[in-house]
Each structure stands twice: as structure tokens, then as C-alpha cells.
């Protein structure tokens, strides 16, 4: 009886440890992923996270996702980035997003990015819009986090 119990306890502890290692390894990968351009990044991992291992449970956390994003010109020839954010939960979500613009040589340009609030109703979508101040052709990187 004692031997069986010890075996089960040992197995459970082992699987937990392996799970934790896997999840932290993948989290490390996500945290150190290379910077990409014309992209949307969730800097708050509680909102959107991928992990293929870990304690039995969801392999993906995606409370919020970026359904679509892109860049277009305004009538004054500046650029405007749009991100369609989708809320997969049953609760209204308040997010903050900011955009860093880069020129074609991938050098940061334009004014300092600032956080803007976006309210995404439960099980719905909202659009985050951000305009550049320059008329040059730009690349962008949008960061999204939970509003505090």
C-alpha cells in the first residue's frame, strides 16, 4: 500500500516538475523571441501565450488575439496602423496598446510611442488605431498589454 502510494506521489511530482520546466523553457523562448516588424506583440503573457507542454491544461492561452493588422495612408500622407483586437472571454476587457514606427532601414523613427486605451467588449472585437506624424514610408511594431 505504502509502495503504491509512494510510486503515485513520485510520478505526480515528476510530471509536475517536467511540466514546469517545459513551460518555463517555452516562456523563455517567447520572452527572447526576435523582434519582428509589421507585427503585433502581446507583452502581457496573461492575454496571449503559447506553450506546448506543461501541467495538463490548455496548450494555449488566448484571452485576446490580434485578428488583423496593417498600415495605410491618411489624407495628409501620414501613416495609420490598425489592429483588430478580439476578446475571447465573457468579460469586457480594457487593453493598452502603443506603436513604435520604424523607417525602411528599421531605424526607430517618429515620436515616442504612447499607451492608448482600447476597450474590447466581451466576445467582441475593437479596433486600435494609431497615426504616425511623419509622411515617410514606415514599418510598425504594436505592443498590447492589459490596462492597469
Amino acid at each position: 500500500m505504502h509502495a503504491k502510494f509512494a510510486l503515485v506521489a513520485g510520478l505526480l511530482t515528476g510530471s509536475l516538475l517536467v511540466g514546469c520546466q517545459n513551460s518555463s523553457k517555452l516562456e523563455h523562448e517567447q520572452r527572447t523571441a526576435p523582434t519582428t516588424y509589421n507585427s503585433v506583440t502581446f507583452t502581457d503573457y496573461d492575454l496571449n501565450r503559447n506553450f506546448s507542454g506543461g501541467i495538463p491544461g490548455p496548450h494555449k492561452v488566448f484571452r485576446f488575439t490580434a485578428e488583423k493588422h496593417g498600415i495605410r495612408r491618411t489624407p495628409a500622407n501620414t501613416s495609420e496602423v490598425f489592429v483588430v483586437l478580439r476578446n475571447h472571454t465573457d468579460y469586457n476587457g480594457i487593453l493598452e496598446a502603443r506603436t513604435q514606427f520604424f523607417d525602411q532601414s528599421e531605424i526607430p523613427t517618429d515620436v515616442e510611442p504612447r499607451w492608448q486605451r482600447v476597450v474590447v467588449p466581451a466576445n467582441s472585437t475593437s479596433v486600435y488605431l494609431e497615426k504616425s506624424t511623419t509622411t515617410a514610408q514606415l514599418k510598425y511594431r504594436v505592443e498590447v498589454r492589459q490596462a492597469k
Partner: peptide, 13 residues
Amino acid sequence: AMTDKMMRSLLAN
């Protein structure tokens, strides 16, 4: 946030 948004909006007009 307010002044930043207005600045960008004005420059797009």
C-alpha cells in the same frame, strides 16, 4: 495619452 492622440490626429488632417 490625450495630447499625443490630438497631435497625431491634427497632423493627419
